[in-house]
Design a protein around this nucleic acid. Structure first.
Lengths: 333, 333
DNA sequence: CAAACCCAAGTAACCGGTTACTTGAGTAGT
DNA sequence: ACTACTCAAGTAACCGGTTACTTGGGTTTG
């Protein structure tokens, strides 16, 4: 049992074959005599041989690496998304290189440069707001990119996601359909997220003389949700419902209301956005909008890989998202 | 503005210098005339030149890539951990390649093979239970490895984490110190996680004639927590406290108790394990054990990079974790 | 029986950097 | 004036695969 890693020439020497044949075996090229193939594999295993990825990448100009940059991985829906991407890429023989931008464009740019410099063949980005410099760089190197968590049929870069604006509008209309007229909306920082901004736009589109929708911007965390609830309860007239533009905020809102002795949905209705995996298990269970995070990661990864392997054009995809009715919203009159 | 990416020879040709000088400039080698340096950088920028990572890796035998395999990224403490690793690696010029094993040893092995085949220089693994095959492979290729989320001074492979057993014992003792004698313990599948198994061991060590600690194994999810609570409430005598070996379970337990009309901690005390970021914001706020996930990721990444750059030996590190007293546990008599 | 063909296997150029070693101009020392 | 030294810059081998093209034995065909 050797302790050093062998090269293709070692394997060639030991089998008495050429490097070309060894290479063919390692790549599953069918034009090799089965006996030779078996012999090569035997020796390769014995030598603990694995083709050097750098040499292979240099020669083929393929790194089999896809970069994903997300704003954060903590709470929220990104964890599911990343999991799906990783699984799909792995199934296709690709690797995921991950960077986290903290929702800062400059960090995103820096991360992207590093990822390009390490050979990423394609990028999966979050949202549609990115520095022009970044997009230029990818364009110049003709590196495929997709935007996710957002759908925009008119975007030059393919988008894979849902229509944040329309969904937010639908949420308000749903609440309105249940008799709510004053609906407070808790949301994270719009400056950090165009998805949040799009949702706010959707809220505004749905509001009218009939429907008031005071917006409350807080940090995107459970703690932020608590703060939002406190602020909302001081409003007058007091909203009969709170739409949280993220389930994470909804959790904070629920905790805050409970600690103030209020009952959901009797005293006030709550609606979320995301459908995280605990949303069905909260008390009361949370009415929310189910975002297809897993599906989105899967589709994004699949499209990118297809593009890399067959130059198939990537197409924007609108993923279905729907309202999940549960117990946290009640009908008022 | 060219649209093709240039090579080092293009830059050399355009500047009238040799590839060696260009290479020196790109690597910050000080032995270059400042004027030449500036010229090279100018041309490089104009040509949109970035050194080919595969060529560089082939030549230097360094990929600047660290692999991390975690069981899951959803809920729980891994998201923080991964974030810290990514940040620290990025700061040192390294990239993170992530794989998710779903707590399956075979998937972990498969992922590791792919990661080795893509040039990962070091591995950060979770827990101490891994297939011998995997460890052998890394050993043979002399790829550095660390285990995390666990501390074991006697381990041959360096471990960076905390003492799960002792912490669980401490948790039971804390509850006992608050007068609890019958303490139900909700935990995830021990077969999937040696950390969970170690915690269960710690629980058992603390139990005695004085202290009863019935164990309840459920899925590691909020839903699992709800199930655990249901099962625990049927026990007789009914436990006065529930120790959840993960905050995620605690959340489920709290929801279930609330939906049954019980009050925490008046009717029953709850204690968690992890200190996720919402734990301080729940209602009531959760008494739990603060695990240094961020610190752990940082230390792991730092050690691995130091090892790669200076061959410094890696050393097992026990990270401090402590009980955070909040409102979910009450003193009984 | 010779020409045409097939196909497994080999040869060697090439991918794009890095770097040990070499070169040669300029400066210092005697 | 001549040797010794310094140092920026160049030359070219090398990293370890892949693959277009070549080779040559064996089979088919007219």
């Amino acid at each position: 049992m050797t302790d050093k890693v062998g090269t293709i020439r070692d394997v060639a020497r030991m089998t008495g074959l050429s490097t070309a044949t060894v290479s063919r075996v390692m790549n599953g090229n069918p034009k090799v005599n089965p006996e030779m193939r078996a012999e090569v594999l035997r020796v390769a295993k014995q030598l603990n041989y694995v083709p050097n990825p750098a040499a292979r990448a240099l020669s083929t100009r393929r790194s089999k690496t896809v970069a994903t940059i997300i704003p954060t991985i903590e709470h929220s829906v990104f964890a599911k998304f990343i999991t799906a991407i990783e699984q799909t890429l792995a199934a296709r023989g690709y690797n995921l290189v991950l960077a986290i931008s903290n929702a800062e464009l400059t960090r995103e740019m820096a991360a992207a440069e590093q990822l390009v410099a390490m050979g990423a063949e394609a990028f999966i980005l979050t949202g549609a707001t990115h520095s022009g410099e970044l997009l230029d760089m990818l364009e110049r190197r003709s590196i495929p990119v997709v935007f996710t968590s957002i759908f925009d049929g008119a975007s030059a870069v393919p988008t894979i996601g849902y229509d944040n604006t329309a969904l937010a509008t639908a949420a308000i209309e749903y609440l309105h359909g249940n008799g709510h007229r004053t609906i407070a909306v808790a949301h994270g920082p719009t400056a950090e997220s165009d998805r949040t901004a799009a949702r706010c736009r959707g809220v505004l589109l749905a509001s009218s003389d009939e429907i008031e929708t005071p917006l409350v911007e807080v940090a995107l965390s459970v703690e932020g949700g608590r703060e939002a609830a406190r602020r909302i309860l001081e409003m007058s007239p007091r909203p009969s419902a709170i739409l949280c533009l993220s389930d994470v905020l909804a959790l904070g809102v629920m905790f805050q209301l409970q600690s103030m002795g209020l009952t959901i949905p009797d005293d006030i209705s709550i609606m979320g956005f995301d459908n995280l995996d605990w949303s069905k298990d909260s008390h009361p269970s949370l009415t929310t909008i189910d975002l297809p995070a897993t599906r989105m990661g899967d589709v994004a990864a699949r499209q990118v890989v297809d593009r890399l392997e067959t130059s198939a054009p990537m197409t924007s995809t609108r993923l279905p998202a729907r309202i999940v009715e549960r117990e946290s919203v009640r009908r008022v009159t």
